[in-house]
Each structure stands twice: as C-alpha cells, then as structure tokens.
Nucleic acid binder design. Sequence first.
DNA 1: AGGTAATAGTTGAATTTGTAACTAACAACG
DNA 2: CGTTGTTAGTTACAAATTCAACTATTACCT
Lengths: 144, 144
Amino acid sequence: MEKNDAFDLQLFLPYLLNQAAETSSDGFQQIYKDRYGMLRTDWRVLFHLGIYGRMTARDIGRMAQVHKTKISRAVARLEARRFLTREEDGADRRVAHLRLTAAGQAAYRDLRGVAEAYEARLVSGLAPEDVAVLRRALLHLAGR
Amino acid sequence: MEKNDAFDLQLFLPYLLNQAAETSSDGFQQIYKDRYGMLRTDWRVLFHLGIYGRMTARDIGRMAQVHKTKISRAVARLEARRFLTREEDGADRRVAHLRLTAAGQAAYRDLRGVAEAYEARLVSGLAPEDVAVLRRALLHLAGR
DNA sequence: AGGTAATAGTTGAATTTGTAACTAACAACG
DNA sequence: CGTTGTTAGTTACAAATTCAACTATTACCT
C-alpha cells in the first residue's frame, strides 16, 4: 500500500476520534446489548436517570446531546421493560418526569460497575498524565 | 440537576470519545454532505483511494475498519456518480481494483483541502503538545 | 382575552445500517 | 481431479436512525 499523497488520514481527528470511539465502545456495547438488549441511547438514558435521579426527556437530550426522537424511543423501550416510570408535572402538562424503577436502578448499578471496570481497563495502557490530557482535550473538542 | 451518585458519566471514555467524535465531525460532515451528497463511508473510501491510489474493497475495509457491506455500498454509490472505476484483477476474478476517476480525484482534492483547514481549526484551541498526546492516546485506544 | 409563536414529546415515512445468507471464485488436501 | 473450506463481494431483510410533520400545551405580546 504505497502512499502517493501527503495527507495523513489516520491522524485526521474526525477519523481518528471515530476509530477510537468505536473501538473503545465495542466491549461495553457487547455487555449492555447481551445482558439487557439495550441500544446506545438506552444505556445513556438509564445512566442519566441513575446518576441524576429524576429528569425530563428534554434535560437528558440536552445533557447527552441526543435528538429528542432518539430519547423518546429509548424512553419508550425502557418504560416497556419496566426500567423507568413517568410522573406528570404539576405545572406543565407537556412535561414528563422520568425516574428509574427498582429494576432500572438494579440494571444501572450493574452496568455502572461494568463501566467502571471497563474504563479502568481502557486507561490501563496509558500514562495517568496522558489520560488527564486526553480527557481535557476531548472535553474541549466536545465543546464543553 | 443534582447528582446523587459518584459515577462521572461525562468523563467515561466511551461516552466522552463519542461526544468529541460527533461534535468534531459535524462541521466536516456538513461539507461533504452538502457539497457532494456523500455519507461517512463514502468520503472515507474516496480518501483512501485518493491517498493510496488503487485498492480493493477488502483493503479499504481492513484499513478503515469498516464492514464489507458498508464498503460495497459506498463503492456502488461512488461508482454511480462516476467518482471511481473498477478494474478486474488478472489473477483473481473475485477481486476488483478500485481507482478514482478524474472527477473523483477532483472531489478528493477539494475535500482534502477542506479537511486540512478543518483539522487546523479543531486543534487551534489546544496546545501542540497536548495534541500530540491526544493523537497518541487515540491511536492506542483505536488499537493501532 | 385572543392570537401567534415556542416548547415537550410522539409518530410516520424515507434513509441508512446490521445481520445473515448468498454467489462466484480460489485454495488446500486427500 | 474432487470435495471441502475459505475469501471477495453482493444482496435481502430486519432493525435503527433521520427528518419532517404532527398533537398538545404553555409563553408571549398587544
């Protein structure tokens, strides 16, 4: 495979970031998919509710930077599996406050443990100071 | 939004990497989509051929870590737009060698220029030494 | 108050992706 | 040779995502 061009695709950030994101998501995805039949947006909603307790779909979408239709469908799937319930808002009847059921919390705790172990394994090949730089750079690129 | 849990989702690498990857791809995606109606796999195939000159679908798939059905469809789209041609292999009739047409090369050069400018803008907010660390860490996480 | 705009969330249709099965060709081994 | 396995690439079907339109409700403005 001989190069006849100076552009280095392997180092182009949108490309490289995507490779790293996909590779480093694969193992975790396998677990939440196999164990709970969840999709990516599902576990994200689950984690947001597990961490923050009670949120609206809109809040989750804002925080996770996910479109409202994806949130809506993920919430519907989690509700169908009895992982969350909706509570209506007293003042604004458009809004539904979401909260994990006991089963949802159990799933969250299980997956949070998996996530922590998985994260530890991911960074185990990197120097701690490099991980710190990596996280800061990623937060910057993510616009945070 | 009050946290009642210690897990920091915003720093969880599979989550953070994905946020950074999506945010930092958005601007570039807008351009190849608006300007050429391409999808992500399309520009990747285009770039591989633009850089390496002549490759098989299999080679591109290996290098970009993309499944063969996605490559197959991207190649079909690019061929339909006369951006590439297939040449049969003398020894193995299963294989098709792909090569950009003049139009494909023009599109590639155009988008390569966009990519270079885009990359420069992406890293402009980061210290050069941090960018170096970032790239090394991403290559490691991508399994390279 | 009444009309217009904005917001929360859902739904349907079109596009895209994932999975598996498939065709065609080559390889390896007896 | 011939049978079995492997590989390159395509296709069919199901699943997921995107985009636009929609309902229902609240906010704004005069």
